[in-house]
Amino acid sequence: MDIRVQEAPFDLGAEANAFAARQAGMGAVVTFTGIVRDLGGDLDAMEIEHYPGMTEKALAGIAEEAMRRWQVGDVLILHRHGRLCADDLIMMVATASRHRADAFQAAEFLMDYLKSRAPFWKKELTQAGEGWVAARDEDEDALRRW
């Protein structure tokens, strides 16, 4: 299990390759990447705040839960904080399993939980001003399917 919270950018290809390379006996690796979107066409930056200490614990707890529920051999969660721009990579998860269904489901579970149970907050800075991104009811609803 590899949990990283960092300000620095990450190399998606290098991370995915390193994750796949350290597995043994796994038939499937699934990765998901979240990217900053400029929905209004005027995004100057996105600032991501987090709760140092709790963030790492919350992510580790979510990863452990995924490994308990599915036949998953390894989990990577990498999440950035600080100032990002449109099209920057925000975060990634990777899961490895013997059969693909476990890796797919565990990756979806990780995403659903870290969206609304890991202490990150996004603020959008646009030409019109700045505002905190509101949590969406759909994100809370998504937890109920697990």
């Binding site: 979240g34 999440h79 969206k115 609304s116 202490p119 990150f120």
Partner: peptide, 10 residues
């Protein structure tokens, strides 16, 4: 003790 709005990770 920490207070904050609903989280928006991912």
């Amino acid at each position: 003790v920490a207070f904050f709005p609903p989280m928006t990770g991912g």
